[in-house]
Design a protein around this nucleic acid. Structure first.
Lengths: 302, 302
DNA sequence: GCCATTCATACGCTGAGCTTCTTAATGGCG
DNA sequence: CGCCATTAAGAAGCTCAGCGTATGAATGGC
């Protein structure tokens, strides 16, 4: 027993719309006899006549009229399904879940997301703010497709890629004795420091190593979890802090920011994604790379 | 270039639901290699991967997840379309348009329609009241599927079939001199008559012939178009009228009804339908015949 | 490190669907 | 009234799509 295929529907719709087997066969690019046969098979399969035909006239039965509407809808659905799947496969439609820590949007990421949205209007970008320790779990569970963080973990399933590098600023409480436009790390050796929690933050440990490299072990008065909290603690008088350049854009009234010029310090942000992350994530990464290259070129030229 | 067929969807859905080629192949009753090949063809056709597969694990891509939902919907639609078409072909669902004149429902037709509705619950019966001259046009244009009238026309496209026969009653105004339980036609020879318009009504001409056959030419004081109007004209004092038995069921306060027993008169109602009327009409006719037969048997026995 | 399991590939075969040729039927036209 | 053009259906042969069998490659479990 033959089963119904889309071919039967295509043939039937052609005949039903032309009300002629020969015209339909011509339009379909097949000969007339196989068309007649396929229609016959379809009618046998359904168990009722769809077309009433004499040698001079072809007309739809009531069943045929109903079936025509549905057949066209099915063919349309099939076309639509393939187009949608293709679009999703290309990464031009769908939902892209981006995971990041709260302070990350202050840097180039905001503009990057805006540009991506402009290019891929069919993609809905969902931004999930989450603490660094939850990011890996979110990626692995598929909750997010791509995450941005300063501490790329070593995980065989996950790939990390440098997104951008920032300079380091020192945050000084208002009225602090240092008044120079820029500072060196060593002139901070007698200060009290507010740090990110060393246990969690690769960035904090990196800064610590830099201090040691500059010849002193910093006195740590407080440890915070969120980078944005550091500024507030400085404002409250707990000491000074070293923060990524772009976090300093989130200005605070009772502190001042000064770039650290010696040694040259940098805070790296990494894009982290799953090995089998979708095409949207790859498109995002591609845009990110081209954007980084553009920035580098501009810096070189300007 | 191969085109997509329902087979591809069936295969894909099977694999996507089992998340295993071998299990799906087993369920589909085919070997695993052709299944792999069909999936590959489908992916080529769509232009993107739908399934991510290693030798140990099969998983859906984002495109695959979307496509799975749509593929299942399409297969369901196809099944639904065939079932609906089959049902329409059998006459068990659809709309049956019945055309009739206003007074026709008083007879056996009401019960017949009720019984038909009980048997074919999927059929929506639409009753169209219309004047006799519009019935043929309605049938030919497809506006109605089956019509009931007392004057079957001779038309090569239309078939008529005796639906039932009724006796004839005479309608007398209240206080008329005739007081017997039943009357003969000849004892009405000196009455004034209200008739249906002779130009339109085969029934009226039939009655006229019967009067002539009984030895008199009736004095016609008024002619009406609707059978139901005759009773009102009698009540108004325009004379007496001869009407089909079942129309007399529509009782009127100021008249009395008496059967005409000699000669035996009958008013026939015919079912009229198109040569290519649908299966619902045929089902209705079949029920009508069996009902008529049942009535005849009951009459014979009782 | 071996083995079992599973998906992909290779290859030959069967039959479904196609083309061509032909027949039957019907409406239009002279 | 009969011929012809037109159209759907039937017959026969062919081609290739899809299937089955056999085999290979890869991966996770023991």
């Amino acid at each position: 027993m033959a089963v119904m295929e889309l071919r039967h529907l295509r043939y039937f719709v052609a005949v039903a719309e032309k009300l002629s087997f020969t015209a339909a066969a011509d339009a379909l690019g097949v000969a007339q006899p196989p068309l007649s046969q396929q229609i016959r098979d379809l009618e046998t399969e359904i168990g009722t006549r769809l077309l009433e035909r004499t040698t001079r006239r072809v007309s739809l039965t009531q069943a045929g009229q109903d079936f025509l509407v549905r057949a066209k809808a099915i063919l349309h659905s099939a076309q639509d399904a393939t187009e949608r799947a293709h679009a999703i496969g290309c990464g031009s439609v769908g939902v892209l879940n981006v995971g990041l820590t709260g302070s990350m949007l202050a840097g180039p990421l905001g503009g990057l997301i805006y540009k991506f949205q402009e290019t891929f209007v069919g993609v809905d970008i969902q931004i999930h703010e989450m603490s660094p320790d939850k990011q890996i779990a979110a990626l692995k569970s598929g909750q997010t497709d791509i995450n941005f963080l300063r501490t790329p973990p070593q995980d065989p399933d996950l790939t990390s890629e440098l997104a951008w590098s920032e300079g380091i600023n020192v945050v000084l409480p208002k009225g602090h004795s240092i008044t120079t436009e820029s500072v060196t790390l060593s002139c901070l050796k007698d200060e009290k420091f507010v740090f990110l929690r060393l246990r969690d933050s690769l960035f904090a440990r990196h800064i610590l190593q830099c201090c040691i490299g500059s010849g002193f072990y910093p006195t740590i008065s407080q440890q915070a979890v969120e980078a944005a909290s550091l500024t507030s603690l400085v404002a409250a008088g707990f000491g000074v802090a070293l923060i990524p350049e772009f976090v300093a854009k989130l200005a605070h009234a009772n502190v001042t920011y000064r770039p650290v010029v010696s040694p040259i310090l940098s805070a790296d942000v990494h894009a982290l994604y799953h090995l089998r992350s979708g095409p949207m994530a790859r498109n995002f990464l591609a845009l990110m790379r081209s954007d980084a290259e553009r920035l580098a070129t501009e810096l070189r030229q300007g």
